[in-house]
Design a protein around this nucleic acid. Structure first.
Lengths: 191, 191
DNA sequence: TAATATAAACTAATAGTATTAGTTTTTCAA
DNA sequence: TTGAAAAACTAATACTATTAGTTTATATTA
C-alpha cells in the first residue's frame, strides 16, 4: 500500500524550491510539499527534521545557486564590466527565483555551518570583483556591504513591486551600478 | 461576563505593531493579538476583516511612521546633508522597528488606496531631497530607485544579520551615501 | 535463499493557526 | 424604558506542524 516513494533530502529541497518560486516563501509548507511528492506529511520527517531545517536547507541551496550564476557571469570579464556582470546575474537570479531568493535571507537558523560557508563564498566572490580598485582592507569591506545593499535592495524592491513607475528597470540598474563605480573612491581606506 | 474591552481599529494596529517589533512579522497572529488585548480571537473580526487586512493596516501605519521620521530629519538641512539625514532616519527607523518595517514591504493587498498613497508621499519626499541635483525628469526617477535600493538593502541586510563582519555600520552607511552622491551624475537624463 | 534488521512509509492524535456561524450581552439612543 | 446595534462570546471547521506508534518494503546478513 506504500510502495516507497524513494524520497531523499535532495528531492525534498528541489521540490520545495519549486514550491517557493511558484507560491512564494510562505507557500513552502510541509503539507504542500508532501502533497506534491505524493506522500503524507509526517513521512517527510524521515528525511528532514521539520519545517525549520527544510528552510535552512533551502537557504543553502539558494545561496549555492546564486553563487553559481554570479560566478558564471564573471568568466572572461574584468574591471567595471565584471561589476556590471555580477550585478545583473544577482538581480536576474532573484527575479527568476523570487521564492528561493527570499529564503536565502530569512535565515532561520543562525550559526549553521553550511549556511555561513555558502554566504562566505559569495562574499569572497564579490570581494574578488572589487579587488582591482585598491580600496584597502576595510575599504574593501565597506564596498562589499555597499554593493550587497544595492543588489539586495534593488532585487527585493523590484520583486515586491516596490518600483511602481513605468520606467525601464534595466536602465535603472545599469545607472545605479555606474554610479556605484563612479563613487567607489569614497570607500577607500588607508589600511 | 464580557464587559466590553473597548477595542477599535487603532488599538489593534498599535498592539499589532508592538507585536511585530517584539516577535517579528511572523509573530503577528490574530491569536497572539487577541491574547495581548485580553479577548478571544474571533472578537477581532468586529474591528478588522481578518489577518490580511490587519497586515495592510500595519503596512500603512508603518509607512506613515517612516514618512514622519524621514520628514522630521529634513528640517533645517539641505543639499548633501539632507540626503545623509533622510538616509540615517530611514535606516534608524528600520532598526528600531524591524517588524513594523518589514510589514511596509510585504504588501499583501496591492491596489489598496491608502497603501499606495502612503508610498507615494514617501516617494515625493525623496524626490524633493534630490531635486537640487538637476537630474532631469526620468533621471530623478532613476535616482530615487537607486537611493531606495540602497536604503532598503542596507536596512534589510543589517536587520537580518547579513553583515557579519565586525566593522562599523555607521561608517559603512555614511560612505555608501557619500559614494551615491559622488556618482549621482550617472542618473542625469536630458529631459 | 531465508531470516532479520533498518528505514521509509503509514495512521492517529495533539496543539496551534484563521475563519465562519450563531448566540449572548452590553451599551447607546429613541 | 424599551429596542436596536455593536461587541463580545462559544462552537465548529479547516488548515498548519509535530510526535508517537505501527506497518511494510527493502536491504543485509547468516
Amino acid at each position: 500500500m506504500s510502495p516507497r516513494a524513494g524520497l531523499d533530502k535532495q528531492t525534498l529541497v528541489l521540490a520545495a524550491a519549486e514550491l517557493a518560486d511558484e507560491l512564494g516563501m510562505e507557500g513552502v509548507t510541509l503539507a504542500q510539499l508532501a502533497a506534491r511528492l505524493g506522500v503524507r506529511s509526517p513521512s517527510l520527517y524521515n528525511h528532514v527534521n521539520g519545517l525549520k531545517e527544510l528552510r535552512t536547507l533551502l537557504a543553502v541551496f539558494g545561496l549555492e545557486q546564486l553563487y553559481a550564476v554570479m560566478s558564471a557571469s564573471l568568466v572572461g570579464v574584468s574591471g567595471e564590466a565584471a561589476v556590471h556582470a555580477i550585478s545583473r546575474a544577482y538581480v536576474t537570479f532573484a527575479q527568476q527565483h523570487p521564492g528561493l531568493y527570499d529564503t536565502t535571507l530569512q535565515a532561520p537558523e543562525q550559526g549553521n555551518a553550511e549556511l555561513e560557508e555558502a554566504g562566505a563564498r559569495t562574499l569572497q566572490l564579490i570581494i574578488s570583483v572589487l579587488s582591482g580598485y585598491e580600496l584597502g582592507r576595510t575599504g574593501e569591506l565597506h564596498a562589499v556591504r555597499g554593493l550587497r545593499s544595492i543588489l539586495h535592495g534593488f532585487a527585493a524592491l523590484r520583486n515586491k513591486g516596490g518600483f511602481g513607475m513605468p520606467l525601464d528597470l534595466e536602465d535603472s540598474l545599469t545607472r545605479l551600478i555606474d554610479s556605484y563605480i563612479a563613487g567607489i573612491g569614497c570607500m577607500r581606506t588607508g589600511d
